[in-house]
């Protein structure tokens, strides 16, 4: 950080002698000042072009379509904000929000809690601990789609768990076929796949907690639990904040796992908002409405992402002060 500040300050003084020399030997067609600008433009332009056409323009298209009643075939008629009003009285939309909120809320709480418990258990540097950390982490590198199919083969009606239960004379449990249980299973798999990321993040933070602090707490007669709750966790609270918002933003977008684990079923009980948007768009009849949902999801994600930035800034300030 300090290094970056130093170099930036030094550079601000340098350009005057550097700048004319930079262009002068070779350029014949542009004054040095403009040539430097043209070079900068050339460095930046390709990225800006690709990013603008493939990301920013589609956002614009989504906003435009969300204000029309386009069905994919007819001419699009501008209808203002009507699509947005339906976001709150359409039952499948509200139920998808409920599912998304439960998944994101419960998933985040459990991932942060589980991550913290295992981070405290595994924070010491040792071979065993590093093995267990890696073990908790590995699902993070595997596609959520594939993890969902794997768990579907384990929890499904003829999956490993149910066929074992059947041998014991217990009827099939609808892990994926009873509405509430399916939602619980979805959250369970999400937490299983995601908490290891928090473990790694928290362990890195815990290892920066100064040992003197822990000694001081021990001398004052604090138990291990008191030390953890009153000293250690508050010390790393900025990291916990960042992890919380990262998990929330990630889970709001949950899509792949829903497709492979439950495909939104039973009866839409595990249909998240992203899932609903893509399902709607393929029906092909309510493109305008699906885009209103997409724009709304973008806004929610943007708000949450702004929270990440705010949390991160606070963390930066906390670590530099």
């Amino acid at each position: 950080m300090e290094l970056a500040e130093l170099t930036r300050r030094r550079e601000r003084q340098a350009p005057q002698p550097g700048e004319p020399r930079r262009g002068s030997p070779r350029d014949g067609w542009l004054p040095a000042r403009y040539r430097a600008k043209a070079v900068t433009f050339g460095l930046v332009a390709p990225s800006v072009l690709v990013y603008t056409v493939m990301t920013v323009v589609p956002v614009g298209v989504a906003i435009y379509l969300s204000l029309t009643d386009w069905n994919g075939f007819s001419d699009a008629v501008f209808i203002g904000f009507e699509n947005y009003l339906h976001l709150f009285d359409d039952p499948s939309s509200t139920s998808a929000w409920y599912v998304t909120a439960v998944v994101a809320g419960a998933g985040t709480v459990l991932m942060i809690g589980g991550g913290m418990v295992y981070a405290l258990l595994l924070k010491e540097r040792s071979r065993t601990n590093s093995f267990f950390r890696t073990l908790a982490y590995y699902p993070h590198v595997i596609s959520a789609l594939i993890l969902g199919f794997l768990w579907a083969a384990i929890l499904g009606t003829n999956g490993a768990v149910n066929s074992t239960l059947q041998h014991l004379g217990i009827g099939p449990v609808g892990f994926l076929f009873e509405e509430n249980l399916a939602l619980v299973s979805l959250i369970g798999v999400i937490v299983w796949a995601g908490f290891g990321f928090n473990v790694v993040l928290f362990v890195a933070a815990l290892q920066t907690v100064p040992a003197e602090l822990l000694e001081a707490a021990a001398i004052d007669g604090a138990s291990r639990r008191q030390t953890n709750l009153r000293v250690v966790i508050p010390m790393i609270s900025p990291v916990v904040t960042v992890a919380t918002v990262l998990n929330l933003v990630g889970l709001i977008k949950t899509y792949d796992l829903v497709v492979s684990l439950t495909n939104g079923g039973p009866a839409g009980a595990t249909q998240t908002y992203s899932f609903l948007i893509l399902a709607r768009s393929f029906e092909g009849t309510k493109v305008g409405y699906a885009n209103a949902q997409a724009v709304f999801l973008m806004v929610v994600c943007a708000v949450l992402a702004l929270l990440v930035t705010a949390a991160r800034n606070r963390q930066d300030r906390a670590t530099t002060s």
């Binding site: 990225s47 990013y51 589609p58 956002v59 709001i252 899509y255 949902q293 724009v295 999801l297 973008m298």
Partner: peptide, 19 residues
């Protein structure tokens, strides 16, 4: 550029088809 990290892929992919 940073604003792009906010955008959820599933929401964007349909308009990308039109582009």
């Amino acid at each position: 550029f940073l604003a792009g990290t906010f955008i959820p892929g599933a929401a964007l992919v349909i308009p990308v088809i039109y582009v």
